[in-house]
Design a protein around this nucleic acid. Structure first.
Lengths: 254, 254
DNA sequence: TGCTGTGAATCGCTTCACAGCC
DNA sequence: GGCTGTGAAGCGATTCACAGCA
């Protein structure tokens, strides 16, 4: 348990809004692409389009980092790549462990995006003794028994949980006890962690359910559409089309 | 491109806030667990704890659905499961196609959570001819050439993109042209879609980068602290404590 | 002239606090 | 007495619109 609630404002003076932090990786990706094409500068309008946001938002976001643009010109691509990387802490290398090497864990281990940008898969851990020693993505799987030692030896502070739901909390507790302070959780469970530990979750079935909600609404809106395997019971009359747009990330403070 | 903005107020009379929609699956999961344990009723406080949110938020969320609780008592578990399922459109079965059967696509195909709750993997599609016919998770992989036919024959309106980034937009365009109106995108790219199509994205490396940001900040905050011993007791009153959670989803309309 | 940087207005979500009902 | 349902206050994020600078 660890439901120590404190409920603080979270954002302080020097604080960058969470919503902005969540978009920085997006900008960074777009900038990296421009950088590879040797584009020297970019306007807020162009970069915003590439990142899928609007330009006012982008400029506001950058204003939290400082004044890195040039009026009448735009932003220097290389410089901005550096500044954002630094802000995100990607100028250093983060060792990451993945726990639970099933289909998903293996996919994560093989995911190129991991290694590319400041992250290094330091170890793969699984509870199945049969997996031990078997290499996945070129990295030998180690047994859960050694979890604490692995964390400590590698100075790992970021852990990825890709175990079945039932094992997630236990794994989480061990990771935290061993010193991990940031967790990316793919298991469909709510994790309890002590203060000071960040948890972000990625949940497939939740994403699908949200899509289903909108999909259903579209069907209702189309109204008397001929068939339809299931006639929605409620003849509600909402017209909400589809939200204007509004991306938004998820931040679980912690 | 398709940046035809419509900008509707989004929430009309009967409209449920996006943030609420994004939490309904969480409540549903917690309720399902209670249901399996044959718990008849639950208070907002208990359910909120199980879902990792605070009770005021939960009550407010439910108030958008209607008055399904009983004052002084709580909510009827079974009834609420039904109401939320209906609201999310899970009383019907949604055929889903997964495009891109690499490590991730295979993991998704094997993911039990898919089938469990109103979703059915109708087809797996991959561009590699060598994959064609090979069964993954018991479902034979089909070639991209037949994408349109597969979508139409199965009445698919939800598509999952798990291809490399470079192929994502093209696949997306074809899915949309064939009639798909909701897309779950795992490729690290911003997709352009016409109005009326919802896109949600799941991006590993973005999640990690957000964690890295916070991780870095923790390190800075601990500042001059000699080593990394955790004064678990009283961390400054400003560090981001672990919020009950604060998820928030992303709806990229179209 | 062109584009950034930012105060001010606005919007939507969260939290509070209590009225209302069992 | 206990717990839900909800108006109202509070707050962060988005958008607007324009001042400021190259």
């Amino acid at each position: 348990m660890a439901t120590g609630r404190t409920h603080r404002p979270a954002t302080r003076s020097r604080g960058i809004p969470e919503a902005t932090v969540a978009r920085l990786p997006l900008y960074l990706r777009a900038l990296t692409a421009l950088s590879e094409r040797s584009v020297p500068t970019v306007s807020s309008e162009e970069l915003a389009a590439a990142a899928g946001v609007n330009s006012a938002k982008l400029r506001k976001d950058f204003s939290y980092l400082g004044s890195y643009g040039t009026r009448g010109v735009g932003y220097d691509v290389e410089y901005l790549v550096y500044q954002i990387s630094r802000e995100l802490g990607l100028t250093q290398d983060w060792p990451v462990v993945i726990v639970g090497i099933g289909n998903l864990g293996a996919a994560l281990a093989n995911y190129g995006g991991f290694a590319s940008r400041g992250f290094r898969v330091a170890a793969l851990i699984d509870a199945d003794p049969a997996m031990a020693g078997k290499p996945v993505a070129g990295i030998p799987v180690q047994h859960t028994d050694d979890l604490e030692k692995i964390i400590e030896d590698n100075g790992v502070s970021i852990g990825v949980i890709a175990t079945p739901a039932g094992a997630a909390q236990q794994v989480c507790d061990r990771l935290v006890a061993a010193g991990v302070t940031s967790i990316l959780n793919f298991a469909p469970t709510v994790l309890s962690v002590p203060d000071g530990v960040d948890v972000r979750k990625v949940d497939l079935s939740i994403e699908l359910q949200i899509l289903a909600f909108h999909e259903q609404r579209k069907a209702v809106e189309e109204g008397a559409a001929a068939d339809g395997s299931h006639p929605a019971a409620a003849p509600r009359e909402d017209s909400a089309e589809q939200g204007p747009d509004g991306d938004v990330p998820a931040v679980m403070p912690a």
